[in-house]
Write a protein that binds this DNA or RNA. Sequence first.
DNA 1: CATGAATGAGGATTCATTCAT
DNA 2: TATGAATGAATCCTCATTCAT
Lengths: 205, 205, 205, 205
Amino acid sequence: MIRLREERKSKWNSLMKEGLHQAVVKVLTEQGLSGLTMERVAKEAGIAKGTLYLYFQDKEELLQSAVQSSMEPLEQELDKILDSELSPNQKLEAIVQQSLSYFEANRNFFRVFLNPEFTGPRMNREGKDRHRRLVASVAQVFKEGVERGHFRPLPDLKAAGVFVMGCAAMIQARLWEETPPPLAEDAQLFLDIFFQGVAEEGAKR
Amino acid sequence: MIRLREERKSKWNSLMKEGLHQAVVKVLTEQGLSGLTMERVAKEAGIAKGTLYLYFQDKEELLQSAVQSSMEPLEQELDKILDSELSPNQKLEAIVQQSLSYFEANRNFFRVFLNPEFTGPRMNREGKDRHRRLVASVAQVFKEGVERGHFRPLPDLKAAGVFVMGCAAMIQARLWEETPPPLAEDAQLFLDIFFQGVAEEGAKR
Amino acid sequence: MIRLREERKSKWNSLMKEGLHQAVVKVLTEQGLSGLTMERVAKEAGIAKGTLYLYFQDKEELLQSAVQSSMEPLEQELDKILDSELSPNQKLEAIVQQSLSYFEANRNFFRVFLNPEFTGPRMNREGKDRHRRLVASVAQVFKEGVERGHFRPLPDLKAAGVFVMGCAAMIQARLWEETPPPLAEDAQLFLDIFFQGVAEEGAKR
Amino acid sequence: MIRLREERKSKWNSLMKEGLHQAVVKVLTEQGLSGLTMERVAKEAGIAKGTLYLYFQDKEELLQSAVQSSMEPLEQELDKILDSELSPNQKLEAIVQQSLSYFEANRNFFRVFLNPEFTGPRMNREGKDRHRRLVASVAQVFKEGVERGHFRPLPDLKAAGVFVMGCAAMIQARLWEETPPPLAEDAQLFLDIFFQGVAEEGAKR
DNA sequence: CATGAATGAGGATTCATTCAT
DNA sequence: TATGAATGAATCCTCATTCAT
């Protein structure tokens, strides 16, 4: 009995939080970070200001939570790819495609979200951690690729860094563009450059 | 007579603005974007709060102006490189080095500055324009390189985009790192990957 | 039948209120007046916030009631003393001892409670009444003492006032002290001074 | 030149603060501690809310300052008495009179101010310190009186405590009374009791 | 030109109280 | 009866901007 009620409560709580995350994203998207006020989030969510504080300790936690929940799906996708049986090349390919398409789907939000000083030091740490984790994972993939003879023996962490950064840069560029080209195209181009380089065969040193 | 006075006035005005820009950068660097108040800028510059409004319409304009003036030296350097007699390869090399070292020298400031929603829509437009101009310039270099047989015939704007973005990503990564490796190393690594790709010779498709 | 149910209901009601009073005292003691929230009282009592409103109209009434109920035991003790067959001196002695020990036992609570503006005008009236009643009672004792030749013929209400106030002051002093001396000692000292005065025999005018 | 301006500024500042203290006292008197809001103080003083923060860091400092400034005149009077050439008896007499008349003149304010948990721990410490200092001073007077043979050899700190407390109690009683008797009368009565005690000559043990 | 005191809109947060379940 | 989620008025404090000197 009690068990059931607890469960329902918890479910409701999750739903509520999810709704609030969306409200945050909406406000963030429409008004920017500096336009993100508790008042507006509440109004957007159709609840009272005070109610926000039933679900989140304060503004920071609300923001934290919204961002975290926004990144989760992508992170799970990437984890799935990293744990899969694909070859290193295929993994990197899949990562690029997933990332680009995910960010593409959330253009406006991430335009704001990809902001280093988003919400003070705590957030920064979180953000950095996320980035580091991803780079480390990709480095693993790269190392494997080197061992299998797919990649040149470049420093794996560095190469992974360039990969992740390049990919992020591509995403950011797409966010800046008003009418970006088809996603797959950019993905392919980036992979081509990352794998083959831009230099002409004969011109290679 | 009047002419002279006008001129002196204008010069004084410029000097003043320059000083205020520096004050903005200092405050921004030390206190972050959310710590940037007119009060602090004024105190840092050693003038009164009200005086700021004699030189700038409002906070936004002050910030705009400061950022613009912070980017100028780099942009001039890059223009010099682009207009030089260097080979395309050398130009790209120089661009990477200049950019990295410039941002490196202003780490803390740009950590804040590289913030998309920095100061509302006006800034965004400015930022986008800057980026486009740079990409266009690099595209020119790339096109020349293709014509001279240095680079593979890839779409020049796209390749330039990847180049600029990758470079920017590298910069951002360095901004995130607490103790980044020697600058030249990262520059070289990036160029190597951009030129040669990561794929092993034999593995190339 | 109905009568019985009514009675049981009333008893339950009383018990509940008693528990809530204790919760109020606990919270007040631990968190101070400004830390007294309905939420905390409810949690302390192990009930829901809304339930408080089934027993008390609002926060003020709850507080009133708790304070009133906290003072009752002492007042009954004092009434017993006043109605007893003790001599005036002994009565005063007993009053001092009872008061000191009672407040001593509830140090922390009364540290908060001895606050004139505790809860608005209603409380003040209550408090004043309490004080007046006590002074009047003591005045009776004093008058009796004068009649019996124990005390000098001073204005009884005034002397009673000094007595009560001095006693209250002693209590307050003890509340302020972090490690007050043994209770009996202060009680004795106060009575000594009140009865004999501080002046040296020979120096008396 | 600059010196003069500085001076005038400082003077203005003091005047302003003084005015704000008065506003605090007024609001406190009329609305009680819980009715003391920055908004009301500002309105009472005829300035904007924000202006308060030009003179005081926050609410606590404002309150602190108002209280301190309200106590200062009395404290100076008492210091003067303590440092004078009067005999111990006369000093105590003077203290009682000064205190009673001072508090009498500020009845309403002190009705609120004599509140132990006035504004959190900092205030408490201040309040306690004030009380301790006064008790210590009076103890000195008392000790001197004992040495000169005016007073019985009672523990000086304790006796001083009773004196101060009794006096404070008298004050508080007067604050509670709606139409207190002439001040001098109460002062004399208190001194009489404190010096001679209430016991009848013959009844003394 | 320069000043800096004054302003007041705006934002985060708390908490007594209500009411649907 | 009991609950506790929801409310929103109230409060403290910040800071861009103005304006009298």
